[in-house]
Design a protein around this nucleic acid. Structure first.
Lengths: 141, 141
DNA sequence: GAGCCGCTTGACGTTGACGTAAGCGGCGTT
DNA sequence: AACGCCGCTTACGTCAACGTCAAGCGGCTC
């Protein structure tokens, strides 16, 4: 029950996630997070922190902020919404699922291609291509 | 030996890859591709087409165009370059490799999270949450 | 040879995701 | 009380990756 009611300052979060304060305020303007205020100052709860984690991961895998907002909204509303809402949420979740699965294939393809390129280079190196250039002495030491 | 010297018009490629002509010209301006010309008109060879495939896939997995250009340059130069070039290329390839591996983890995490969300919804539906709302009759039919 | 394609080159517009600079308020230290 | 930090807001700036005209050229076909 301890960490559940922890709070964070904006600085703590910027350091933890390596983002600027500007970014967090921007996400707030965009409605992605809604920290409370003590006077003017923002007070982030665990809920906000969890959302930030989702946002940043979503960003890393190529979602736009509006797509991320949509997902966050789904998490918010598919509990208390009616059936229509819930089914709509399910559909949206599956769409994201398929998008990510396609992306996973792309990544795996790129990975094998990169590995091939690297081993091609390694082959060339071990076959004495390096000997063409005296620099390999330097590189080997 | 047949498809190796095939050529393509800009229209053919836009349709095949579902991009606009503007996009292909933009990539050319940025130095990512370099189709020949018959008069004014661009003539794309298989080399260009292969590069476009790489570009678009790179884009899908979240690379910026300048990162993509870097990779393309590596493919071009690590053959004919000196050892220093080749080793540099290897290093860069490995950087991309690690970036993609991190991204793959992110995607897998997102996937399991999405699957959990969906099965949570499915549980709620099968437990009769639907009965709360007469609309489920409609949805069931 | 007029009309219409498809392609071309500028050049300016747009959108998303922030960066940056200016200026103010609070607050703990010195 | 003056200083140095945070933190806040407002507002303009930026960068990438194209979109969107405008205007012109070469070729065909009727």
């Amino acid at each position: 029950m301890n960490h559940l009611n922890r709070t964070y300052t904006i600085r703590q979060l910027t350091k933890e996630f390596d983002v600027t304060a500007r970014t967090l305020r921007f996400y707030e303007d965009e409605g992605l997070i809604a920290p409370e205020r003590r006077g003017q100052t923002r007070i982030y709860a665990n809920r906000d922190r969890a959302r930030i984690i989702l946002i940043l991961r979503g960003r890393r895998v190529g979602f736009s902020l509006s797509e991320i907002r949509e997902i966050l909204d789904l998490y918010d509303t598919h509990h208390d919404g009616g059936v229509t809402q819930t089914l709509h949420a399910r559909k949206k979740f599956e769409e994201q699922l398929h998008k990510l699965e396609r992306q996973k294939v792309d990544i795996e393809d790129s990975l094998t291609e990169l590995k091939r390129a690297i081993s091609t280079i390694d082959d060339a190196i071990s076959k004495g291509q390096l000997a063409k250039n005296p620099l390999h002495q330097v590189a080997a030491e």
